[in-house]
Design a protein around this nucleic acid. Structure first.
Length: 842
DNA sequence: ACAATTTTCG
């Protein structure tokens, strides 16, 4: 479409005739109607330039006129030069002018001279200049002029023009020009022209376009060569089309066209796709064929490999690079040392560090900072003293890396001390007892020094120390910056020190700093955590004035908190107030509200909210649907939950494991375990892997349906599927088996659980005891009770398990086999009184 | 420099 529009526009331009230039007209009149005063002048000019001058003299005269400031088109000499203008002269003038602006002015002037017409070479010379200067608008106009003035071109010239346009990204224009030139009969593109076109398209990364042009080229009977397929390979690489790129590469390989450049394109693409091993494989293939990467490619690859955390491969490449005779620079050492430090491979990092020093490459502050993070203080001092940095700024940078290192080593007190010494607040001598570096000369800290220490203190919750330093930094001439203010406000807000953060907030604004969205949101977060709706809304109004959006996580937290305290109405009011301020809450925030309502048993209000937001064009995500489905299931409204499931499927949302877990639980708890089991098999069939929660829910459901053997079968299947049971799963099974009167089996799982060092809740022991009592295995019941006593793990007085346990203890005390055991437990004070108060102790 | 909403046992 866009292409059509351009072509359409161009056609109307085409109809217009070459406009008459007023300057050209004036110069004609001037020659015919000579005034006496300028007569002599013209004669001189005529003699030197117009009649007897050579093209080179002509060229230099024009260059000198056009470079003279101010330039005047009325210049008499210029008018004399005009009639003899040739395309060769225009070309050499253009090449002789240094500035693209002047060249373009000359070019435009020449276009307007009577009797002169540009040819494809002058156009191309101008195009080259504009393309180098990346002047897109005049280049676009130049391409149009070529068509408007019906300039014929050789295939080579068109190719050159296409490349000029292509390098500045004028791909649409290139394609239009290419087609129009052929339609208008100005040029018959050949193999070379097509190669140039493909190269231009390669920059646009459009697979469709390049495939279309390649086919077109072949249809015209032109053969592909290396320069045809290189841009095609580039486009596939750019678009991440692994297979297609490889296939082009293989084609080229068969033709024997592979060179270093083509290898590099592919290797760089692999590296960009994160396929470091594949990239390396190709590098080795290159080596086998004695093709070498260039230095820039080495550097890009090493950076890329480190980014993909393949530091070992990066190091191998680094060796290869040096074997190829390229000298590494400081940035490569920086990235490699950085990668090694990140992997905590300090030894190798230090090796590189000493290597670079031996090569005479000075480590910069960035490298030192990375290393410092791993150093003991003594090593830091050594590093600092070894470094032969003289200028003051660099020294501060080094000290800052020491401060950084100390902070990262959690030696905040030492960092503080060193900073204090730098600030002149503490004598240098204090430092020695801490084995810290002496402060050379007078080194005032800068804002960064203070920020490193203050940020470190804020992060470890030493807010008061941070605030004291903050207040003192002004005295030594360090101005706090916005980040420092923000971090302090953030720290204060996180410690719920709201008043102080407001105070700092005021101070910051008074110092002329505009609060950022981070500042506002720190305070907003604190207010939300406190559930202070009024203040939160006040702040939102202020944020509105700054165009700062309240962060979703904070709004969601407020909504969640309000609902948790039964204040769902306020939560909804807050949301509508936010909307009134023009900030539309995210679906996540609404989900939090729906969940809050559901937890307050207000499923219908949650549904209502859901319908309202849907009608306002919100697209609920899976989680929102899950919340609703879960809520309906819990309210025993499973049929409605199923309806919501179909609704979400219709809307194209894919149910997640959580969705199914909710439904499975719903079916289990509404006497439809079979439906739940069916769902499990559907999940397995759909490759939607059930989780521990799925299995736990079902195990629980099967036990409640008095199907302990099915529950055990499922348990074993879960193990076979490689799904490890967690604490809750074990407890569900143990408790479930007890309910089904299978305490012996149950006990085996308790033992297994204990072996795994998972600590069961007390209800599990109570269930076992009670179940053993019911199945008349009083001996084992007493055993478990003793274990409970050993662990001191009894139910709370208000827990209903207390009653169950009391009942069991009573039964045990009444039976001859166990009564003495109970008595001695009671006598030893090992059972809380509430669990045996009915027992007759005599 | 900020990452939020949902599920299992009692």
């Amino acid at each position: 479409m866009a292409l059509l529009r351009i072509i359409g526009a161009h056609k109307t331009v085409c109809k217009s005739v070459k406009p008459i230039n007023p300057y050209a007209l004036v110069s004609l009149l001037f020659i015919k109607n000579i005034s006496p005063a300028s007569h002599s002048h013209r004669l001189i000019c005529t003699k030197t330039h117009s009649e007897s001058s050579s093209p080179s003299e002509h060229t230099s005269a024009l260059i000198s006129i056009f470079t003279k400031q101010p330039f005047s088109p009325d210049n008499a000499e210029l008018k004399n030069l005009a009639p003899r203008l040739t395309t060769q002269v225009v070309e050499s003038v253009l090449n002789g002018l240094k500035s693209w602006k002047i060249a373009h002015r000359f070019f435009t002037w020449a276009s307007n001279q009577c009797g002169y017409k540009h040819n494809c070479y002058t156009y191309n010379t101008m195009a080259s200049i504009l393309s180098h200067a990346r002047q897109i608008a005049p280049l676009r106009a130049l391409a149009m002029d070529i068509l408007n003035f019906h300039c014929s071109m050789t295939p080579g010239a068109l190719g050159h023009l296409v490349r000029c346009l292509g390098t500045v990204g004028l791909v649409k224009e290139v394609n239009m020009l290419f087609d129009q030139v052929r339609i208008m009969g100005l040029c018959v593109p050949n193999n070379y022209t097509y190669n140039c076109l493909l190269e231009a398209i390669a920059k646009s990364k459009s697979i469709d376009l390049i495939e279309m042009r390649l086919k077109e080229m072949r249809d015209y009977g032109w053969k592909s060569d290396k320069y045809t397929l290189t841009p095609v390979l580039q486009v596939y690489c750019h678009a991440g089309k692994f297979e297609k790129a490889l296939s082009v590469f293989n084609d080229m390989n068969e033709q024997g066209w592979i060179d270093a450049h083509i290898f590099s394109i592919l290797v760089l693409a692999f590296s960009k796709w994160g396929e470091v091993d594949k990239a390396f494989e190709f590098i080795e293939r290159m080596e086998a064929r004695n093709i070498r990467l260039n230095q820039k490619t080495f550097c890009v690859l090493i950076h890329g490999f480190v980014r993909e955390s393949k530091v070992d491969k990066a190091l191998q490449l680094f060796d290869k690079m040096r074997q190829s005779g390229f000298d590494p620079d400081v940035s490569l050492y920086d990235v490699l040392i950085g990668g090694l430090c990140k992997n905590k491979d300090l030894e190798k990092a230090l090796c590189l560090y000493s290597e670079m020093k031996q090569l005479g490459i000075h480590p910069d502050a960035g490298i030192l900072t990375k290393l410092m993070a791993f150093f003991e203080e003594s090593e830091m001092i050594r590093l600092l003293e070894e470094s032969k940095v003289l200028d003051e700024e660099a020294i501060i940078l080094l000290y800052n890396s020491v401060l950084n290192g100390l902070v990262n080593n959690s030696s905040h007190d030492k960092a503080c001390l060193l900073l204090r010494v730098m600030m002149g607040d503490q004598p240098d001598s204090d430092i020695e007892s801490y084995k810290l570096p002496r402060v050379k000369k007078v080194i005032g800290p800068n804002t960064t020094s203070c920020r490193i220490v203050i940020d470190g203190l804020v992060k470890t919750g030493k807010l008061d120390l941070a605030l004291t330093l903050f207040r003192d930094m002004n005295r030594v001439g360090c101005e706090p910056d916005i980040i420092l203010y923000n971090n302090l406000i953030y720290g204060l807000c996180n410690s719920n020190r709201l008043e102080e953060s407001y105070e700092l907030f005021r101070q910051m604004k008074m110092s002329g700093f505009e609060p950022t969205q981070f500042t506002h949101n720190s305070i907003f977060g604190c207010l939300c955590r406190r559930g202070d709706v009024v203040a939160a809304l006040d702040l939102v109004r202020e944020m509105r004035a700054h165009g700062h959006e309240p962060w979703i996580k904070h709004s969601s937290l407020l909504v969640k908190g309000l609902c948790k305290h039964g204040r769902a109405v306020e939560a909804l009011k807050f949301l509508s107030n936010i909307v009134q301020e023009g900030f539309l809450p995210d679906i996540v925030t609404y989900s939090a509200a729906m969940d809050g309502l559901i937890k307050l048993q207000e499923v219908d209000r949650a549904l209502e909210l859901f319908r309202v937001i849907c009608s306002h064009n919100y697209c609920p995500d899976v989680v929102a649907y899950n919340i609703l489905i879960g809520g309906l299931c819990k309210a025993k409204r499973v049929l409605e939950a199923e309806d919501i499931l179909s609704e979400m499927v219709v809307k194209g949302r894919v149910p997640s494991v959580v969705t199914y877990n909710h439904l499975i639980d719903g079916w289990c708890k509404n006497d439809d375990v079979d439906q739940a089991m069916l769902c499990l098999s559907k999940m397995l069939a759909e490759d939607r892997e059930p989780s521990v929660i799925t299995y736990t829910t079902l195990v629980n459901g099967l036990c409640n349906a008095r199907r302990p053997d099915d529950a055990l079968m499922l348990w074993n299947e879960m193990g076979r599927k490689g799904c490890a049971p967690n604490r809750i799963a074990f407890m569900a099974l143990i408790h479930g088996l007890c309910k089904c009167g299978r305490p012996n089996t149950s006990l085996a799982y308790l033992r297994e659980m204990e072996e795994k060092e998972m600590k069961p809740d007390t209800f599990v022991y109570v269930a076992l005891i009670s179940s053993f009592v019911s199945s008349c295995n009083l001996h084992l019941a007493l055993e478990i009770l003793k274990e409970m006593a050993d662990k001191g793990n009894f139910p709370e007085p208000l827990d209903k398990n207390c009653l169950i346990l009391r009942d069991a203890v009573l039964k045990l005390s009444e039976d001859a086999k166990t009564s003495s055991g109970i008595k001695s437990l009671i006598a030893g004070g090992r059972i809380p009184q509430i669990c045996y108060s009915d027992v007759d102790q005599e």
